[in-house]
Structures are given as structure tokens and as C-alpha cells.
């Protein structure tokens, strides 16, 4: 199998339709949209709870999720997302251990930026009450004012920071 080359990615419009139908199914069956950052945050609450249970139980934000933060539909959805991605990657022969970066960017620099970027995204998702999935995509499809504003600001922030970070990505 490894001798075979990775398959090219799908037509983005058809992939988009599939994503949209998934979101629609989520609306119709669950009554809520897709989400990813809440799953990560719940995992963080769980992990922090293993280290400092009393502190978490008494904190105002994580503490409100009770003693078992992992018992939540978005945590389960995140697990599904992982397996869906795994299945698709195997099918398309795209499964490969790798670090993606521009040629002029060192591995250490890329990893540091991924970490800091992750921290910023994790924090911003909690502040805005969702990420690209839960706020921009889901709320955008519902035509909610705040979600569309989030979507616009996301791109504004991204484009503003793109230039200083260009060397991370440029080949």
C-alpha cells in the first residue's frame, strides 16, 4: 500500500456539500450544530481535574461542568471526528507521520508556533463560545449575527497576522 501514492483530495465543493449535509443532519437529529473546541476544553477540564480535582471543582468555569466533564455530546462527537478522519486518511493513503512547514522554517520553530497558536485558539474559542466549527460554521449556517461577526473577525485577525508569520509556511 505504501508504494501507492496518496490520492488527490476531493473536489472542495463536493466535500463542502458533504460537510453541509453533516451539519444539517446535526441540526435535524441533535438540534445543535457541530463543535470541536468544546470537546478539547472538556478534555482539558478532565485532565486538570486529575491533577487538582478540588481546584477544578471549585473553579467557576470548568467547575460548572461537574465531576465528569467528559460526559458530553461534543466530546463524543470529537471522538467520532477522529475516527472519521482516520478512516478517510487510511482510505486515501494519506496516513503519514509528519510535521508540515515551509522549507525555511525549522522543526522546533514550527512546533513552538503550533503550540502557541493552539493556546491562542483554545483561549479564543472559550471566549467566543466556539471555534470555526461551533461558532463560524454552525452559527453562520443559522445566520446568527454574532457568529457571522466572529467569522469576519477570524479572517481579519488571520490576514493581519499572516505577513509576519509567512516564513513558517513559504517554501
Amino acid at each position: 500500500m505504501d508504494s501507492e501514492k496518496p490520492h488527490p483530495v476531493s473536489n472542495p465543493y463536493l466535500a463542502g456539500v458533504m460537510l453541509g449535509l453533516t451539519l444539517l443532519a446535526s441540526f435535524l437529529f441533535l438540534g445543535v450544530g457541530l463543535g470541536a473546541s468544546a470537546g478539547i476544553a472538556r478534555f482539558a477540564a478532565f485532565a486538570e481535574g486529575c491533577v487538582a480535582p478540588r481546584h477544578v471543582a471549585s473553579s467557576e468555569y470548568f467547575g460548572a461542568w461537574g465531576s465528569n466533564p467528559l460526559s458530553y455530546y461534543l466530546v463524543v462527537m470529537m471522538a467520532g471526528t477522529f475516527f472519521g478522519g482516520l478512516f478517510s486518511a487510511l482510505l486515501a493513503n494519506r496516513m503519514k507521520m509528519r510535521v508540515e512547514k515551509g522549507v525555511s522554517c525549522s522543526r522546533g520553530r514550527r512546533m513552538s508556533l503550533a503550540l502557541v497558536g493552539g493556546i491562542i485558539v483554545g483561549f479564543a474559542s472559550r471566549l467566543a463560545g466556539g471555534c470555526t466549527s461551533g461558532q463560524a460554521l454552525t452559527g453562520g449556517a443559522l445566520l446568527l449575527t454574532g457568529s457571522l461577526i466572529f467569522l469576519i473577525c477570524l479572517f481579519a485577525g488571520g490576514y493581519a497576522a499572516a505577513y509576519p508569520l509567512r516564513r513558517q509556511w513559504h517554501d
Binding site: V116, G117, A124, C153, G158, A161
Partner: peptide, 27 residues
Amino acid sequence: VGGLIFGVGFVMGGWCPGTAVVGLASG
């Protein structure tokens, strides 16, 4: 504010939460 800083984190990290889960799944 959340959207603006999210965008910065997005271009810095190269991922958003949902896609990162898929990225991890593919190695």
C-alpha cells in the same frame, strides 16, 4: 475579540480545533 485572536492563532498554529483532530488522526 475572540474572532480576531482566533484568526491570529489559526495562522500561527496552522490548525483550528476540528481540523487538528483530523490532522492528528492522519499522523
